[in-house]
Design a binder for these strands. Structure first.
Lengths: 298, 298
DNA sequence: AGCTTTTCGTAATGTACGATACAGGAAGAA
DNA sequence: TTCTTCCTGTATCGTACATTACGAAAAGCT
């Protein structure tokens, strides 16, 4: 069981290593370096042959280049590139200092405490959620949410109900006919009466997918309702019936799954709705404000 | 000179292809999918053997997975991933072209779409929340939460109630006597009867600090209750009476404040409680599981 | 020019890797 | 139970790949 290799404290980026070796290189090696840095680091992840072709040179020249830069093998070189890439994908701030040959060190997690790591995991989850989210899918869901002609129903499981409720409260501010399906399961059949076939149902279904939630969603789907599913990457069975799926990571160093990315996605949806509604939504909110202060509530 | 092969107009992302195939997959394949998506797309760039090991499975299973997703070979799969990655890396740098020659000192986000920026803001909020959190304060709150001798009460505002409810549900799994103060404000005085002076009250109070929440918290504090406040950095008036304050950033590029960091902090608390309780908490959860399956519920 | 040194590609080699065939075994049906 | 089907890992194979050896060509030096 190989532990994730620790390449010692703070190795320099490959780009930097290349820069430092640059003046003791032969002409073709210089060309290779240039090709690598220009498409950094993609070409380095391909095979030696492909790399060579792009640099209009031969395999051995690539290998000599690699060893001169300081790697024991081409495999080691690729491993280093992947490591780098991984960090860069996870921390948007350190995005390009590799190529810039800047000396800002990459964040090094090893010294941080569990709390900080927990935070990092959450941040990474959010990042990943938005990275893997298809923009088309997102836009399509926003379109459904802003369509005030048809009713909107929201359903959540035991824990995800809180997130469902969150979405419900915000959407209620922004548009008419938003309905949260809540209360004990036994009352759900009644609530089904209010759902017509042109409506949309947003379902939150996360690990420990609840049979009652699944059943309800499937029945709705059969009834012709448009189904939007927000789930973890394991994906509930509902995926099969859903018209749109937004999946988010839930894993954190903890006994329980995290709902943070799910909430993040939910807020992104709300933000998207606000955006799309424009002044129309704004006016609605203002009207609501007035009503609230008038009634002296809160 | 081989042209860069064009795989037709706008092929879907690998992630999406995986999602679409997900429901016709076997358990092992699902696990593979999960591993891939969780570290997206880094494991996919490694060798089949490395990928297999990370997914605790065998090489052939990886290959079956790859073909089921829709790739002719592992090489084709990797090529697709690289293409994707390339686009993702290039888009924020479009204006950045002559990287080395450019004199712009720092890369910024202006090239990315609003969704990505939104995600960045959320991730940054979480990081800041944990960076500025005092470890002592955190530990002290955990101590209060794990103290099962005294009752615990949880209170939230209009929106933060969902987070309060989230905390409530998890803590209920982990310890006895946890009580969520909910329902309309008018019923709160009644619920106050259940609160004794050695209890702890967790209050969520965010911008648009609600008078009723503030009033309730203050009364409790006068009654001798230990007060824990979770709030945004602007801090509610309750700060004055609180024994412990955990503040989190709420700002995002959107019309509304974000509750994500608040939820993150909440989950960190739950994780801390689990940690502190150790096997004791574990046993309690197992007992609960049994009860639940026994009663046939969900 | 002729000799030496450096540079670089061709060709050969060994191996690590992806691919495949197959069988043990679990899960489900009859 | 027994039979069937579907999973999934082990063992094997063939090949594409990184790597090495070698020699031709270029560059540098006297």
């Amino acid at each position: 069981m190989p532990l994730p290799q620790d390449d010692g404290p703070m190795r320099p980026t490959v780009a930097k290593m290349v820069h430092q070796t640059l003046d003791e290189m032969t002409p073709t090696e210089r060309r290779i370096a240039h090709i690598l840095l220009a498409s950094y680091p993609m070409v380095g992840l391909e095979t030696v042959a492909a790399f060579a072709e792009r640099a209009r040179t031969s395999g051995p020249s690539i290998l000599r280049f690699i060893t001169k830069v300081g790697f024991k093998s081409y495999a080691a070189f690729q491993r280093a590139l992947r490591e780098e890439l991984k960090e860069r994908l996870e921390s948007p701030l350190a995005r390009y200092d590799g190529v810039m040959a800047s000396d800002t060190p990459l964040p090094d997690d090893s010294g941080r405490d569990t709390l900080a790591r927990f935070g990092d995991a959450l941040a990474a989850n959010i990042r990943r959620a938005f990275d893997t989210l298809s923009r088309d899918e997102y836009e399509a869901v926003i379109a459904l949410l802003t369509d005030s002609k048809h009713a909107l129903h929201i359903l959540g499981g035991r824990f995800s109900r809180t997130t469902a409720s969150y979405l419900h409260m915000y959407l209620r501010e922004l548009r008419p006919i938003v309905h949260l399906i809540d209360g004990p399961t036994s009352t759900w059949p009644d609530q089904r009466l209010d759902v017509s076939k042109h409506d949309t149902l947003i379902v939150y279904d996360f690990r420990r997918y609840q049979p009652d939630v699944i059943r309800f969603a499937e029945q709705m789907a059969r009834q012709g309702v448009t189904l939007v599913l927000i789930t973890d990457i394991w994906n509930s069975q509902i995926t099969a019936h859903a018209h749109h799926v937004l999946s988010v990571p839930v894993e954190v160093p903890s006994a329980f799954d995290s709902g943070v990315a799910g909430l993040a996605m939910t807020e992104a949806l709300v933000a998207g709705v606000v955006d799309r509604l424009g002044s129309r939504g704004k006016r609605r909110i203002e009207r609501l404000e007035k009503l609230r202060t008038a009634s002296g509530e809160e």
